[in-house]
Simulated scan of single mutants.
Amino acid sequence: MFTVAVLGAGVVGLTTALKILEAGYNVVVIAQLFPGDARDIRYTSNFAGANHSSMAGDDKRQFKLDMDTFDVVWKMSEPGSPTEHLFMRTPIIHYYHDPVTKPDPLADTMPEYRKLYSEELRVGATSGTYFMSVTFDVWRYLPWLYSQVLVRGGRAVRAQVQHINQVLEGAFCEKPDALAVCAGIGARTLGGVEDENVFPIRGQTILIRAPWIKQCMGGKAQPGISTYVIPRPSGDVILGGTWFHDDWYPKPKEDIHEMILEGAIKLVPELAPAEVRGSGRTPTVEDIRPLIIEAGCGLRPGRKGGLRLEKDTVEVPNCKGKQVPIVYNYGHGGQGYQSSWGSAMEAVMLLKEGFEV
C-alpha cells in the first residue's frame, strides 16, 4: 500500500490527510505544530473565525471548492449528528455600504438566502444579505480532525522540515511514495517549494464570552479592517478583524485591538451583557471589555495567483532518478476552513492521477 507524507497539520493538512486515508493510502502527517499545542503565530488555524461564507466572487474554481466543503460541513452539523457539537448552525448577515453591482453567487446555493429589508440595515449600510450557514468551533474541530486521522490509522511525526528532500530520503519516517504539501505560510520558505508568491495576510481578532449571541454579522469598516462577530457553539464569540497584506507582525496590536472592540459594539450592541441592554443606555466598549478571553493574531497564507492546488513529480535524492508524485494544496488565504474539504477532495484526485502515471 502506498504511503503518503502530508506536510502540515493545520485545517487543510489534516483534512487532506483524512481524505487520503479514506482513499485507501497510508498517511503520515509531518509538522512542527499540532492541535492542542500552545498558541503560536506559525499555526494560523487556531486563530480563525471561522464561519462558512464564501468569498470566491468570480473565481469559479474556488467557489466550487467552497460549496463542496459546505455540503460536507452542513451534513456534519445536522441535529443529532455525532459531529453536530463541532459547529453552530446560524444566520450569517452581511451589511454593505458600497453599491452591489454583481449578482451574488451565494443566492442560489445557501439555505434561506434573501436580501435584507431596509428596516434591518445597521450602521449606515445601504444593503445586506441573510442566509443560513455554520460556524466552526475551531478548538474542538481541529482536535477532532487530528483524532480522526489517528483513529483511521494515520501517523503523526513532530518535526521541523527544512527541505522536502529530508522527507523524501526518510529522515522522519520510511521513504514515502508521495508527498502532499499543505504547509500554509510555510510554503514560502520550505526548501524544494520556496513559493515566493506566498505572502501573509495578517489577521487580528478578539475572543470573548457571550453565549447569548446566536448569529454572525459582518460589514466593511475601512481598508484592511472588517467588522465581524462570529459565535461558536461553546458560547465563545470571535470579534474581528484585520486583512493586512505582507504584514508579518506576530502579536496583537493595541490600537487595532481597540478598533475591533469599537467596531463590534457599534455593529452589534447586543454584545453587551443583559443588565446593560436592559438599562436603556447605549452600550460601550467598556461594557464588553470584561468579557474578553484573549486577543489573537494569525498569518493567513495568501498567494498571488490564488490557491495552489496541482500535481507534479519530484525526484528522490540518491535513488537513481526515482520520481514520486507530489500534490500542492496551499495558499488558501482566509478561506482555509471554507474550502478545506473541497480542496482535500481535489488533492486526492490529483494524487490518484499521479500514481497512475
Score class of each variant (00 low, 15 high):
residue 1 M to C: 08
residue 4 V to E: 06
residue 6 V to H: 06
residue 8 G to I: 14
residue 9 A to D: 03
residue 13 G to K: 11
residue 18 L to T: 02
residue 28 V to L: 04
residue 28 V to E: 08
residue 28 V to R: 05
residue 34 F to R: 09
residue 35 P to R: 10
residue 39 R to Q: 09
residue 39 R to T: 03
residue 43 Y to A: 05
residue 44 T to W: 00
residue 45 S to I: 04
residue 48 A to R: 04
residue 51 N to A: 11
residue 56 A to V: 03
residue 57 G to T: 07
residue 62 Q to P: 00
residue 72 V to I: 15
residue 73 V to M: 07
residue 74 W to L: 09
residue 74 W to F: 11
residue 79 P to E: 10
residue 83 T to L: 13
residue 84 E to C: 12
residue 93 I to W: 01
residue 93 I to T: 14
residue 98 D to C: 04
residue 101 T to A: 12
residue 104 D to L: 10
residue 122 R to W: 04
residue 123 V to I: 10
residue 125 A to L: 11
residue 127 S to C: 08
residue 130 Y to I: 10
residue 132 M to Q: 15
residue 134 V to P: 00
residue 138 V to T: 14
residue 143 P to R: 07
residue 148 Q to I: 02
residue 150 L to M: 13
residue 153 G to C: 02
residue 161 V to L: 04
residue 162 Q to H: 13
residue 165 N to D: 15
residue 171 A to W: 07
residue 172 F to S: 02
residue 173 C to D: 11
residue 175 K to P: 05
residue 190 L to M: 05
residue 191 G to N: 10
residue 195 D to E: 14
residue 195 D to G: 11
residue 196 E to W: 08
residue 205 T to H: 06
residue 218 G to F: 01
residue 219 G to D: 14
residue 222 Q to M: 13
residue 232 R to F: 11
residue 241 G to W: 00
residue 244 F to P: 00
residue 260 I to D: 00
residue 262 E to F: 01
residue 264 A to R: 03
residue 268 V to G: 00
residue 271 L to S: 02
residue 271 L to C: 09
residue 282 T to L: 13
residue 297 C to R: 00
residue 300 R to F: 02
residue 301 P to Q: 07
residue 304 K to T: 12
residue 306 G to F: 06
residue 307 L to V: 15
residue 315 E to F: 02
residue 324 V to H: 05
residue 335 Q to E: 07
residue 340 S to R: 08
residue 344 A to M: 03
residue 344 A to P: 08
residue 345 M to K: 10
residue 350 L to Q: 08
residue 354 G to Q: 04
residue 357 V to D: 12
